[in-house]
């Protein structure tokens, strides 16, 4: 009787598992996808993509490049990278590293300090965390410097043949902390300490940013006043032209 019961149990187990979805063994992480295969170890061209909800630390020279989820990064040559999609955090190993360059299709960013890049739909956001970042825009020979605690956006090459850049402003703290917390390598306590240490840099940037914007507003006011004067002069010229026309018509229509 017991044997029959057990056999029935086995049969029921078998039937229940006949339509089960198969769990794929490859769901286990190979950490990142590399192209060409296993290229991370070398020094030459290498494309690396992180998968969903999986960040990756790439140690290069004396810097660490932390790739966020679903980020695609190319190593063009030692010390020179190209970010194609996602977010990338660049930090020196011990305070300061050799100069590391990260490119995008619109601009090139070089620094030996900590910075990070966020790729958005139509523009690139560069955030300088500690120390200056040099920015070279495509189609523009000038080198711009983004000071620590500041962020700026860069858009693609426009009809003037050069990439465009905004006005630097203090880092947007909320989105910055969100990404930083996600990519930070240490524990929560270490993160809090790092954040406290960084806070004065940000506060300084906020003060400077305010001064820059006040100056900009002042310049804009001056420009608007100039434009107003020019428009007024044009209106006066037009009024005088209209007066001349009226005179002409008085002669033609009234005094014929």
């Amino acid at each position: 009787m017991i044997v029959v019961g057990l056999l029935a149990l086995i049969l029921a187990f078998d039937v229940a598992h006949a339509g089960e979805i198969v769990a794929l063994p490859n769901e286990e992480p190979s950490l990142v996808l590399q192209e060409p295969n296993e290229c991370l170890q070398g020094n030459s061209y290498c494309a690396v993509r992180t998968s969903e909800r999986r960040k990756f630390k790439w140690i290069e020279k004396s810097a660490t490049l932390t790739m966020d989820w679903q980020t695609l990064l190319l190593r063009l040559e030692p010390g020179v990278f190209r970010l194609i999609s996602g977010n990338l955090w660049v930090s020196p190993q011990k305070g300061q590293s050799e100069i590391l360059t990260v490119e995008t299709e619109a601009a090139q960013f070089s620094s030996r300090y900590e910075f990070w890049i966020r790729r958005e739909e139509s523009q690139i956001l560069i955030l300088s965390v500690r120390g200056p970042v040099e920015i070279r825009l495509r189609g523009d020979s000038q080198v711009y410097v983004l000071e620590s605690g500041f962020q700026n956006w860069i858009s693609r090459v426009d009809r003037r043949g050069r990439a465009q850049m905004g006005i630097p402003r203090a880092i947007d703290i909320e989105s910055h902390i969100e990404v930083w917390a996600r990519l930070f390598p240490g524990s929560r306590t270490e993160f809090r300490a790092a954040l406290e240490e960084w806070r004065p840099i940000w506060l300084n940037a906020v003060g400077l940013s305010s001064e820059i914007h006040q100056e900009l507003v002042h310049h804009r006011e001056l420009a608007m006043a100039r434009e107003h004067r020019s428009k007024k002069a044009q209106a006066e010229a037009r009024a005088s032209e209209n007066q001349r026309l009226r005179e002409l018509f008085r002669q033609k229509v009234l005094l014929e």
Binding site: L33, A47, L72, L74, R138, R159, R160, G161
Partner: peptide
């Protein structure tokens, strides 16, 4: 996944080339 990665790399090359053309166009 590998094919998608290759396709994305090629799409980026094309996009980069477009940016080069856009830089030279005004001249």
């Amino acid at each position: 996944a590998r094919e998608t990665l290759r396709r994305d790399l090629m799409a980026h090359q094309l996009d980069d080339f477009r940016q080069v053309v856009a830089t030279l166009l005004p001249e």
